[in-house]
Design a protein around this nucleic acid. Structure first.
Lengths: 203, 203
DNA sequence: AGTAGTTTTAAATATTTGTTTAAATTATAC
DNA sequence: GTATAATTTAAACAAATATTTAAAACTACT
């Protein structure tokens, strides 16, 4: 009974918490913020999850998964090296476009208190050993690309475009542009990143 | 008298506030944190600055200045285009090395509540019109480098290396390395960024 | 030494925080 | 339909929050 009837409420709280945590971060979020967003009684957040901290950890786990899993899948896909580079960059772009607060949230929460998030972060260790990593070594061995480690190429594929979005607010104000213009700029910059990485790797 | 005798206390509070705000952010910092860090009575933060918010805005202004001013100076320096690229990247690296929380702080605070920081951000508009910008146009006109706008090249010079440091915590855990190894990695990556940008620009 | 002005202190302010309680309501099973 | 369990509610909780107060301690100048 519990599972069936409680799901709507429990799910509503999680969705609300996800939304508020993403926007305000853990420190900036109050239990009442979440309850209000979910349009529910304050006590329910502690009824379904035992504390704000517990609720946060669940949300964080989900969001870290969203942040990494698809990229991980692409890296392990059956696809040629160069296409994989393009697809990873495109996917990162799509991801941050759909969830504009995600990168800021993950990077900031991990930076602020890495210790408590360690068990979740461990899952991300998978990026060290992917099919893409093997392909990378192969391309280097063949002399097709310059020598480079996985820890150097991954930030190029994922991090650079993420930074553009993380600094969106400031960028828009510095260059006095609106949402629409920023999107065009980001898209353009993404293509430049692709070309730049290819240019660098293939000399 | 006020100026001479109050400076030590006022300065001690600012230094403490700077330290705590940098580490914990505005939301994560309490007035007591600051007072404790400064080893002073809690009431003094409100005696010298009128509120936590006012104190924060002063600190933020200083830190935003630290974040941008030196880069701005370099961009306006009397130096050839290519050297300026190298120097900007090197300076950004030095800056984040010395103040590891700075980028996370600035990016996060601006992202969370850009409105209240607008007056400060306006100062950063200067990056749009620098000597470097003129040099950039000239190099493009001469056909030395490919066409690119200042809004695209600046993130390459400043943002990419910043992202590496912003994700330091996660990177260290993913690749199971310590501080020392990370520094070596970051240094290496910085040189790769230089080469990549040059390679991209000069085709 | 005494006084005016500044700085520091301990204590109290009113809110807000996360969390809990115990009663009320709803749903489920027999 | 009634008993049992699950859910929701309003209210209260203690602790922490930013800020203020009013008195004490200190400083500088006559």
């Amino acid at each position: 009974m519990k599972c069936i009837s409680s799901k709507p409420s429990e799910e509503r709280i999680k969705e609300a918490a996800r939304k508020v945590f993403l926007k305000k971060g853990f420190d900036g979020t109050t239990s009442r913020d979440i309850a209000e967003e979910a349009d529910m009684n304050i006590a329910l957040t502690n009824y379904y999850f035992r504390s704000k901290e517990k609720l946060f950890l669940e949300i964080f786990k989900d969001l870290l998964n969203l942040y990494f899993q698809n990229t991980l899948d692409i890296l392990n896909k059956d696809l040629d090296f160069k296409s994989k580079i393009y697809e990873t960059i495109d996917h990162t772009f799509e991801m941050v476009s759909k969830e504009p607060d995600l990168c800021n949230f993950i990077v900031n929460e991990v930076h602020r208190s890495p210790e408590r998030l360690v068990p979740d972060i461990n899952f991300v260790r998978q990026v060290r050993h992917t099919k893409f990593g093997e392909q990378l070594e192969e391309e280097i061995k063949k002399g097709n690309i310059r020598p480079i480690g996985i820890e150097n190429i991954l930030p190029m594929l994922c991090g650079y475009i993420q930074f553009i979005f993380m600094g969106k607010s400031m960028h828009m104000r510095i260059f006095e542009i609106g949402e629409h213009e920023f999107d065009a700029y980001a898209k353009d910059h993404k293509e430049r990143i692709k070309e730049m990485i290819i240019c660098y790797l293939y000399n």
